[in-house]
């Protein structure tokens, strides 16, 4: 007697097996559900310190700064400049611009100054699809200043944009 699996059954097994294998691959990689960013509320009485916390939340959420583009405290071949110490470095980037002015410029007009060795690629984040409001921009700036510097921005600060 010869044992053999009939051809149609083999085909079905092949189709099911291959599909199951690829589906399994999908199950073993990290599982992350990305929900639309919840609205971050900024109220008028927030202090600079509160803004830093909101800014940090925005950076990895709605603002998307840390979602694949920038890093904090990494070296090696990077896609875009590392933000570690930017709060201290900001004032020395462009002559005539204070740290605050430089940070505001690099968020509203990213193409105005490109860090040497990197390609131009950032979009103005006050425009769609990211569309940060002016208050949210201030929060992000406060967070940036806190990376190696002392945050000074408040909700009353005029960013000039």
């Amino acid at each position: 007697m010869k044992l053999s699996v009939p051809m149609p059954l083999r085909l079905v097994l092949l189709v099911l097996g291959t599909t199951a294998f690829y589906m399994y691959l999908g199950q073993i990689v990290p599982q992350k559900e990305a929900h639309p960013p919840p609205p971050v509320l900024i109220s008028a009485e927030m202090t600079t310190e509160d803004l830093v916390a909101v800014g940090a939340e925005l950076a990895s959420g709605k603002g998307q700064c840390l979602v694949g583009c920038h890093t904090v405290g990494q070296s090696g071949p990077l896609r875009y400049p590392d933000l570690d110490g930017i709060g201290a470095r900001a004032a020395t980037r462009i002559e005539g611009l204070s740290g605050l002015e430089y940070l505001a410029q690099s968020l509203y007009e990213p193409a105005a100054f490109i860090v040497p060795g990197f390609a131009d690629g950032m979009q103005p984040i006050d425009q769609p699809p990211i569309s940060l409001s002016e208050d949210e921009m201030k929060a992000v700036i406060a967070w940036l200043q806190s990376l190696g510097g002392t945050p000074t921005v408040t909700l009353d600060t005029d960013l000039g944009y």
Binding site: Y22, L25, G26, Q27, P30, Q31, E33, P36
Partner: peptide, 12 residues
Amino acid sequence: YTPTLGFATQVV
């Protein structure tokens, strides 16, 4: 929302 990759591969 964007589903997990595991769910997406199940649908695929």
